[in-house]
Simulated scan of single mutants.
Amino acid sequence: METILTIKHLTKKFGYLTAVKDLSFTIKKGNVYGILGPNGSGKSTTLGIVLNVVNKTSGDFQWFDGNISTHNALKKVGAIIERPNFYPYMTAAQNLKLVCKIKDVPLTKIEEKLEVVGLLDRKDHKFSTYSLGMKQRLAIASALLNDPEILILDEPTNGLDPQGIHQIREIIKDIASKGTTILLASHLLDEVEKVCSHVVVLRKGVKLYSGRVDEMISSHGFFELKCNKETELIDFISNHSAFSSSKIENNLITAFLNTPLSSEDFNKQLFAKGIILTHLVQRKESLEEQFLQLTDN
């Protein structure tokens, strides 16, 4: 599969603050990648570096096969990393006409891309009359004018109402289904779970996970347990090869599995040791639970 972007040991410092630390990951063609992390985790800084608007401190990145300059590579990239910024007194079509001239793109692309984002019927309406969601959709249309190989979006649904969020997500899925690679930064777990095929999890500029979303949430789950012999139960779990870790909160023991183990077999093993459970529930982890474990809540 063709490589779109390779990031190697990227670091960015702002004085004493390290915004991105030794970050490495690769983006392959045809997938939807999410950079997931709380505010201040280095998502926007990473996007700014690869788009040449923020200078890196160390490390490297290369677009496509690496034999093309960043300046020329960015001609094949569409990006929205700030709030949509168009002339309010001009119509959507007039604003996109200006973008076409800047990008040296034929004007025939305007209606094609407005249709993609569901704004063709509003093409002759002034930008000032658009809702926030419509402004964001127009920005996506603008970023698509040059038929980019990759579309980069920074918090694409930030500040939108539920309907606006749904519309943007459906547009992203539609664009991806036609073969465009997408990289989006988000602090919303729900967004990444619903839209992305791959995820890079950041905390304070450090990568905690990189891989497929479905693999991140395909853990073997965990047991929720209560028992009158709590110390013996914890010792048993600690010495059991099927468990990776455990925690106690409000007398509830949570034991995380690293290999498959049925509740029936586990209960039999405990019973044989004279440990009787008063509560036993087996669960699968959601992306949220995985994320909270990765980021230490």
Rank of each mutant, 00 (worst) to 15 (best):
G211C: 08
F25G: 02
R137Q: 09
F222G: 09
T278L: 06
G78E: 02
G179P: 03
R137C: 06
T70A: 15
S24T: 07
L208Y: 12
I276C: 11
K56A: 12
H187K: 00
E191Q: 03
E2I: 09
I217A: 10
F271E: 15
L17C: 09
L119R: 02
K75D: 07
F86G: 02
K284W: 07
L145C: 03
P162V: 01
I27P: 03
I35H: 05
G133W: 07
E170D: 14
V77M: 01
E2C: 12
E2V: 12
D124A: 12
K8F: 12
L23E: 06
E111P: 03
I150C: 10
L36W: 00
V53L: 11
G274S: 10
G59S: 10
G118F: 07
E289H: 10
P260H: 01
S58I: 02
G34I: 09
K75T: 09
D124L: 12
T108H: 12
N251H: 06
T11D: 05
N39Q: 04
Y16F: 15
D161T: 01
I110P: 01
E170H: 13
F25R: 00
K21D: 08
F61H: 05
V206E: 11
S142Y: 09
A73H: 02
T181S: 01
T231V: 11
V201M: 08
Q167M: 12
T157Q: 00
L138V: 04
P156A: 03
T278M: 06
K268I: 10
L17Q: 11
R203G: 15
T6V: 13
I234C: 14
L287E: 05
F291I: 06
G30D: 04
Q269K: 15
K226P: 00
S24H: 02
F86E: 03
L233D: 03
L270A: 08
E288P: 08
S286E: 11
E224T: 11
L119P: 07
H9S: 14
N228K: 15
A73D: 04
S218V: 08
A242G: 13
I81P: 02
I217D: 11
S238D: 06
N95R: 06
D154K: 01
L160M: 02
P38D: 15
N31V: 08
G30K: 10
G15M: 04
S24D: 06
K194W: 10
K29F: 07
N258L: 06
V105D: 00
I175P: 01
Q269N: 15
L252R: 07
E224I: 11
D235Q: 13
S128W: 14
